[in-house]
Structure formats: structure tokens, C-alpha cells
Amino acid sequence: MDNKSQATGGKKQSQWTLRNIILIALIAIFTGIIFWGAGFLYTGLTVALTPFGMAPFANDLLMGLWCMAGPLTGFIIRTFGSAFLGEFLGAAVEVFLGGQWGAGAFISGLVQGIASELGFTLTAYKRYDWFGLNASIFTTVVVTFAWDMIRNGYDKFGLPLLLGLFVTRYISTFIFAGVLTKMIVKLLDRSKAINL
């Protein structure tokens, strides 16, 4: 089967072909379902941390996992908007699978989508390397954290707790959206399954 027929022929040709749209959606759904399977982890962590009032750490510990679809699709389909669409659809999957966030997941998806897209925008869609990935990680952490300051009332916490949450989120995002994404992209590159 010809798996290399991605629209990369002419530089000016739009990457937004029917095939690539389906590909982004499929990758988003795959990752969405894999995370959904890890949902027990979130519930378990929340239950364990609630008596100490540290439940927000469950959210920040797993943030990287939820923000993986964006950088992944952004790296595979290298064009404006692909990271956003991947991340948003990944969140939408959770809504339809009956996740515990309801409409909140749609909005988180929007915020996370914009957040990870922003990193690729900052590098003008030219740096598809460790630097570009880190730019996306940085914007993801900063934007989603700012959003949680409002939505989840983080702004009412004292500075030490706030710093702890921020660092936790950064490490989590770095590991999942960064290191893991890089390893996946490396495997893809080696397999020559797709023109990266």
C-alpha cells in the first residue's frame, strides 16, 4: 500500500487534504481512547490526594498526557492548525465517550488546542525539531495554567502551592508531550512510513 502519498509534493500545495484531515482525526481518537483507558489513574490519584487537599496535583500530574495529541499531530502534519485540530478532537473524544468533564472538556480542548498550536506558530512552522517541540511545550504549560487560574480557582492559592502545581505541570508536559512525542516521531521517522 502506498502510504507515502502525503501531499508534500509542491511546497505551496495545501496540506489540508481530505486524507490528512481524516489522519489527524484518527490519531486524535486513538490517543483520546488510550488516555481514556488511563482515566482510572486520574480518579485514583484524586481520591488519594483529596484528604490532603492536594487533588489539583492529580490534574497537573496528568496534564502532559492530555496535551499529547496536539504536538503529535502538529509534528506529523506540518501546517497551520493541525496541532489545534488534533488536540481539540482528542478532547472531543472524551466528551463522546462519557468522560467526567462534560462541556468542560470541549472548552479545555479549545484552550489546549490553541496552547499547543501557539508553540508551532512562534517558530513560524519551520522548526520541527527539539526546539520547536519545546516551544509548544512552553506555550501549552503557560496557557493551560493561566486557564486553570481562572477555571479551577488556582489564583486563590498561595505562592508555594501555585509554584508546586506549575512545576508539576511542566514536568508532566515535558515528559509526555516532549520526550514521549519525540520517541514516537523517531520511530515513525525510522520506519519511513510517512514523509516527515
Binding site: 490526594l49 483529596t50 487537599g53 492536594m54 487533588a55 467526567q100 468533564w101
Partner: peptide, 9 residues
């Protein structure tokens, strides 16, 4: 779970 968690913290 998330609601009680947020509430307590």
C-alpha cells in the same frame, strides 16, 4: 471526584 477534590483543596 474532581468536584470534591477541588472543593477540599
Amino acid at each position: 471526584f474532581p468536584a470534591v477534590g477541588l472543593f477540599v483543596s
